[in-house]
Design a protein around this nucleic acid. Sequence first.
DNA 1: TTGCATGTTCCGGA
DNA 2: GTCCGGAACATGCA
Length: 259
Amino acid sequence: MPELPDVEGYRRYLAHHAQGRRVERVHADPTILRNTTPQGLGRALVGGVLGPPRRHGKWLSCPVDGPTLVLHFGMTGSLVWSGEEPERHPYDRMILEVEGGELRYRDMRKLGGVWVVPRGVDVESVTGPLGPDAQRIDREDLVELLARRRGGVKAALMDQRMLAGLGNLLVDEILWRARVHPRRAIGDLGRGDLERIADRTEEVLRLSIELGRVPPDETWLMGSRDGRDATCPRCGTTLERVKAGGRTSVFCPRCQPWS
DNA sequence: TTGCATGTTCCGGA
DNA sequence: GTCCGGAACATGCA
């Protein structure tokens, strides 16, 4: 379930368990490797020491003595350290055997992927252009970014080239807190709307990043949105769903009126 | 059996 | 050039 807070959780997890350890061996499902082969991955990584992992948006990268390992988690990716779970799993698509254990990249649906960036090459060559990270951008800059956009507000917030890290569930959560209907055009919103969106973005990310995940909390839209007659955690109105920005959006018709 | 699912990318049409 | 919707990718679940 990787959105920015989850990937930030994986970054800390990798740093905690695997950073500083030397890679002894790698195994990989060739179909999860996006720009290399199992042999190429081995040549790049074996013998190297895992450096400090970095996150930008939903991308995680980790330098390994020159080359950089780059991971994207798609919709179902995660990391597992052998000390926490001794057995390998059929969906473990890549395994780094390191001194003292192994780090596994698990991804059921394989919509994510694994890349290797050679020494001296920019990580952007695989991630493509990304906007500023949603965790690190400050409020004023985010308001300015939003004010310059056109089109739907939801599509804008999910556009990784504008702002990196927000996905469908987080954007629904932010718009619900900011009381903005997900199908509104950004050009029709007032300054106050944009400021509330920026404030709620900061709030949602701060709270969920502390935990390394989005809390399964019934006071969050995210914790209440599933099910046929899910209700708004704030006012109890039955939640509705519409398509916006190409995905299903859940919103409260009372808290997020059209006008 | 059908529709839907938290990701990105590519394509066609307005 | 801009914006939007839909399909594709791979797999599981209701």
